[in-house]
Design a protein around this nucleic acid. Sequence first.
DNA 1: TTGAAACCCGACAGAACCAGTCGGAATTAT
DNA 2: ATAATTCCGACTGGTTCTGTCGGGTTTCAA
Lengths: 163, 163
Amino acid sequence: MEITARSEYAIRALLMLAEAHSAGTDALPVATLAYRQELPAKFLEVIMGQLRRGGLVTSKRGASGGYRLAVSPRELKVGAVIRTVDGPLAGVRGIRPSDTAYSGPAAHLPVVWVAVRAALRRVLDEVSIDDILTGDFPPEVAQLAKDPEAWQDRWPLKAPVQD
Amino acid sequence: MEITARSEYAIRALLMLAEAHSAGTDALPVATLAYRQELPAKFLEVIMGQLRRGGLVTSKRGASGGYRLAVSPRELKVGAVIRTVDGPLAGVRGIRPSDTAYSGPAAHLPVVWVAVRAALRRVLDEVSIDDILTGDFPPEVAQLAKDPEAWQDRWPLKAPVQD
DNA sequence: TTGAAACCCGACAGAACCAGTCGGAATTAT
DNA sequence: ATAATTCCGACTGGTTCTGTCGGGTTTCAA
């Protein structure tokens, strides 16, 4: 259950574009985006290409070119960003949760996988880029993050040795 | 957001042990577990070692030895299994959600990561091995899986080409 | 028209991780 | 004794992740 650097960088880039969007600024070149959030420029270039092909941003080449949002920040959901650059939100050994099947005592296991995916969706497909910009999250998500325990780490039954 | 083969195999093995547990059967050797659910035997052997060191199972060596549950199936949660064999449930580029920090327009991003982890916990730390065995899930999880839409795939803004 | 700014693209590379195997040592019941 | 079984370290082949490199192409502006 890892958020990749790819997805993280994509979201941070889009946040900058959303900020510029509301300020009515010109297109932002990769160099600027990379500098402002300290992201590896050439890698980000690859990622921006994915976002463009996915229709999340538009690009303009040449001098004073750069990237612009193609979708309003309010309608652009984090889940869509992740799916665009990293593929499906959830998988089990590479297959979709709803395509899993087991025999015997594991027969009901797909229910768990589907519930996991559904739980992820209820966060990632609800939160928009604009929500992150303003810090004003949908009630469902705000509720989850409000609990102080959500900010604490949890350990397995036997805690690993401290070193 | 991938469930690894490791975690999946661990859960399926524990489900078999839980079944035997209620039937009061003897300890189950790896060979039997691997055969019954068609898991790679030597790999499962490694995984069972992790579960033992994590305190989820006990082992007996030698003839008519094998593995037994060390925790009652009802108290053994899926989240604990995953943490034992694969480490933390959620991470962002390898760091814990609550340890992330960003500047500028990404300042509120950690709220999203923490909410993601909390959402995962609400499923994985609620569902027990016994729940999966019986197919009788906690209301929260049952609710998520009840929705037919939860069993459907979702696509990013621009659907990928079919091939 | 020239040059610089920027996107665009394919190839490559190192590192890490994942899934799984191999061979054998230690332990235990019969 | 012997067979069954856990236990353990080393190893491997493949894939993915995170980038980098070098150059081609488009566009603006002077």
